[in-house]
């Protein structure tokens, strides 16, 4: 026999009030599961970590300073840290267009030139790389059509593209942006496609069961599921972007940190060269931190996962 029941709309139900089935799992229950004392320990731990991290640079700088004679090492080739600092100060805050120092007061302008080019090229790489990666990872036809080309072009170093870039874009920022976009594109597309390939099949089935179409699944399931891999690609790509901008500016652009680097070397201003190198390092570090912060925000669900799993 079979019990035939009138199917009722869920809204009409007079269900048992708040059934006491199983309880939430221990600490993971409510949204606030911060261990006690963490607020107290955190600042001291942070201070300790900063001190530990600063030890090596301080030792190196001190040794470098003490090894110098009359402000330089290796027979005048390498300036000591105090000279580098002085050079950077003039470069950053000196009066513009006066005296014999062509770099005086141009630091910020050059930082902005380079950063803008990285931002533009990196943005292009994201706009092309993420959709292409999702397509390659998700669709067999897209993978068959795009992946071989990507894999064959990928081993060509961006430095090898320099003559091509100058020939096509001439001397100017266009070539730099092209090289940055190209260099950052590869890690973004490769990691994104890997992430899209690895999406849990059950999540796709669940979305299909709930009536989601192909585009909805790509946007609402495949993209968020691939996001951790996408961010891995973004961070690697951004690093390559900074390499590309310096290479391009050294050869094919008349402004930016790469241009100053090569120009200062040419006229024997090693103090400016080193100040420039440190500037590039800092910018690379800060931009990576920025991407990391966005990742932290976008993947909050994943952070909880690794804590509780």
């Amino acid at each position: 026999m079979s019990v035939t029941m009138e199917p009722a709309a869920p809204t009409d139900t007079r269900a048992p009030a708040a059934p006491a089935y199983d309880a939430p799992s221990g600490t993971a229950g409510a949204a606030s599961g911060r261990p006690r004392g963490a607020t107290l320990r955190r600042p001291t731990r942070l201070a300790g970590r900063v001190l530990l991290g600063l030890a090596l640079p301080v030792i190196v700088l001190a040794a470098w300073q003490l090894a110098g004679r009359g402000g330089s090492l290796f027979g005048g080739v390498l300036p000591t840290p105090d000279r580098v600092w002085a050079a950077w100060w003039t470069w950053a805050f000196g009066a513009q267009g006066l005296g014999l120092n062509p770099y005086s007061g141009t630091w910020l302008a050059n930082v902005l030139y380079s950063a803008e080019r990285v931002a533009k090229g990196f943005g292009c790489a994201i706009l092309i790389g993420v959709p292409a990666g999702i397509a390659i990872g998700w669709n067999r036809i897209a993978a068959g059509a795009l992946d071989p080309t990507v894999q064959i072009l990928r081993p060509i170093p961006i430095t090898a593209w320099l003559p091509f870039s100058i020939a096509v874009f001439g001397i100017g920022p266009g070539g730099a942006i092209f090289l940055i976009a190209l260099g950052a594109f590869y890690p973004i597309v490769v990691n994104t496609s890997q992430g899209a390939r690895d999406v849990d099949r059950m999540l796709i089935r669940a979305a299909l069961m709930m009536g989601a179409g192909p585009f909805t699944i790509l946007r609402r399931v495949v993209l968020p599921a691939a996001l951790p891999s996408v961010f891995t690609g973004l961070r690697i790509g951004l690093g390559i972007g900074w390499t590309a901008v310096i290479v391009a500016e050294m050869v094919a652009v008349k402004s930016g940190l790469g241009y100053v680097l090569w120009d200062a070397y040419y006229v024997g201003r090693m103090d400016v060269v080193i100040a420039d190198m440190i500037t590039i390092g800092l910018l690379g570090f800060l931009s990576d931190r920025l991407v990391l912060a966005i990742e932290h925000w976008a993947l909050a669900w994943r952070r909880l996962q690794s804590h509780h799993a």
Partner: peptide, 14 residues
């Protein structure tokens, strides 16, 4: 009471 919880914060039964 758990509308705003993420799946990972729930037990298997929940």
């Amino acid at each position: 009471a758990f509308a705003e919880a993420l799946p990972v914060q729930l037990s298997g039964g929940m």
